[in-house]
Amino acid sequence: MRQSNTYIIGFSAILTMLLGGLLSLTAIGLKPIQEEQIALDTQKKILGAVMKLQEGDDVPAIYSQRIKSLVVNSKGDEIKEVDGAPVIAESVSIGNQFKLPPDKRIYPVFEYMSKDKPDQVEAYILPVFGNGLWDKIWGYIALKGDLETVQGAVFDHAGETPGLGARITSLDVQERFANKKIYDNVGALVGVKMMKGETGDPSIYGDNEVDGLSGATMTAKGVNKMIYNYLTYYQPYLKKVTGKNVKKPELGTKNTDV
């Protein structure tokens, strides 16, 4: 009996249904908690670009206190809703937006407010997204109030090689980006480039360069491209903010001055 085809098919069918049901129950039951965790993780990442979080910090509290978020379109104008639905910066999936052409995307901006003067922006945190060597890479890059200097950066990845490309997630690599400039000395946008090779000597690099990743040049190139691309996409917005903040020739026109 136990060897008959009917029994085997019946047994497999029942087992599949039982196990399938169990899995769906687990997935649905745990979904709210998982989403909470993911939201918390996003907040940690965003804050990680501008400050060092300690274990035990009340991340949601710090986040709601210091971060003001908005969403802009490719022209740099703030938008409140997409297709009639209100848009929340934190829920914008950069990965999904990445699939659209750049001028159709919406771009979240996270403003890190000064602690003493709550309406002064200390840093602008911009999400970045791109391709590493094996899979997607993403992160946040924080620009200081002057919108030229990098305050900090965080990166994450889906499938880079541990010990090589995956090092973009380590603090010592991310710290290399601090205080670098995203414009060159004639004012053209160049982003921050990880160089080929790793010397461990930060002093030999220029304002737009950081030490590379030994054995992970392809991932480093991906990071460079991602940073450059997204800074390009955010240019219209950054220009608008600069125009508002500082009375000096617009960044875009700097180019033609020289």
Binding site: L22, L23, T26, A27, L30, I33, Q34, Q37, I38, L40, D41
Partner: peptide, 11 residues
């Protein structure tokens, strides 16, 4: 199931 539990409680 273990994977989902970890995702929920030890993200």
């Amino acid at each position: 199931i273990v994977d989902q539990l970890l995702k929920a409680y030890f993200y």
